[in-house]
Computed example of a mutant assay.
Amino acid sequence: MFRGDVSTLARRRNAAHDGGADEISTGEERDYTVRAVERVCSILNLLQESIDGVSLIEVGQATELPKSSAFRYLWTLEAHRYVERDPDTGLYRLGLGFVGMQSRHLEVLRERARPWLEELRDEFEETTNLGILDGDHVIYVDIVESRNKVRSAASRGDRDPLHSTALGKAIASQLPDARVRDLLERTGMPRQSDNTITSIDEYMDELAKVRRVGYAVDNGENAPDGRCIAAPLLGTHLPVALSISAPAARFTLKDVEQAAKKLLDVADQISTNPVPEQRPVVEPA
């Protein structure tokens, strides 16, 4: 609950305006809370904390509103695109009205990450990437290309599968298992190469390893001749990850192990709220 913390002068002005000068003399602090706004904040907080969405009943319970009133709040927020309702499940999620705010956050993150992407590119002489989960795919937010004539590089704005990329694995490792399974069922996990993981259970086993070692590897799974290593950016409140990608012939599994420590360290530096103490010990891929 937010309470007004105003100066004595401001409170006197308010009291004079409201005709409540006697009330100020008691020394009691006014409560400037607007109940309707509080309920809207409660609804948005509830939706933000949910990956799969929330039901009308859950919204009513969180706001202590009857079902009909909760529906009117949601309907109004939906009309302004701050909430969207899944027509199949009936669950509510945050809507596109927040995209502009998130876009600005993402742009700030991209600007913060750019020098580190360049540093990684220069140290390992390979392409570096910043990616975010967009729907059920990974979209490339920024790319710093290797200076080698033969290089592995996508283009900014390109989309790649969640299941066959190191960026996708790194991002998925930070999502609830139920959400990951839902995304994989939606895409169908098409085979990109002979090494592509096409089983949900096998992929979940892979994510368990990613969570243990702290980074993900695409070992020729998205392209037969490619190899990539990625680490999630913790503390950014966005489903984002950082990666190094290269031709497999030049970027061996031994190189991946050597690059992992540096990648994890850079990921910590980029994160808006670095938490290096939470990073696991690097193990062989």
Rank of each mutant, 00 (worst) to 15 (best):
E38L: 10
I24P: 02
L263Q: 13
K209Y: 04
V281I: 11
K254S: 15
D158Y: 01
I51G: 07
E119H: 09
V281N: 09
A15N: 06
S50W: 07
N195A: 15
R104N: 08
A246F: 06
A231Y: 08
H237N: 14
Y140G: 00
R30S: 13
V59N: 12
I244S: 05
W116Q: 14
S152N: 12
V83M: 09
L117G: 06
P247N: 09
R250D: 09
T128R: 10
R93F: 12
D177Q: 11
R93S: 10
Q258A: 12
V266A: 14
T8A: 06
R250Y: 02
L233S: 08
P247M: 13
G95S: 07
G53F: 02
N129E: 06
D31F: 09
T26I: 03
D22M: 08
P87H: 05
L233D: 10
D160F: 10
E145Q: 14
R93Q: 11
M1E: 14
D86Y: 04
V6A: 07
V40R: 06
N195C: 10
E111F: 04
L242H: 06
M1N: 01
S42W: 05
V40Y: 03
V256I: 13
T128L: 08
L120E: 04
R112E: 08
I43C: 03
D86N: 13
R156I: 14
A15Q: 02
D225C: 01
S152H: 04
R13A: 15
D158W: 05
A154Y: 08
P247R: 05
R191I: 01
I139V: 15
A113R: 05
E125R: 14
R121K: 10
D142Q: 02
Y73K: 04
G135S: 02
R156P: 04
A241L: 07
K67F: 13
T89R: 05
T128K: 07
P284I: 00
L74K: 08
A10Y: 08
P190V: 03
V256E: 10
T187N: 06
L183Q: 03
S164T: 07
L175G: 08
D268A: 10
I57H: 11
L253F: 07
A172N: 06
L94C: 12
V54Y: 01
L207I: 02
A170D: 11
L233C: 13
R121A: 04
G20W: 03
L133R: 14
Q102L: 14
D88H: 00
E64S: 15
Q61Y: 02
D205I: 13
L233W: 04
Y92H: 11
V150L: 12
G157M: 01
T127S: 06
D177A: 14
T165S: 12
Y82H: 14
H17T: 06
S103K: 10
M1Q: 05
R211G: 07
A62N: 04
E126I: 12
G27K: 03
L109E: 00
G60P: 09
E23V: 14
T26F: 07
Q48S: 09
E283D: 07
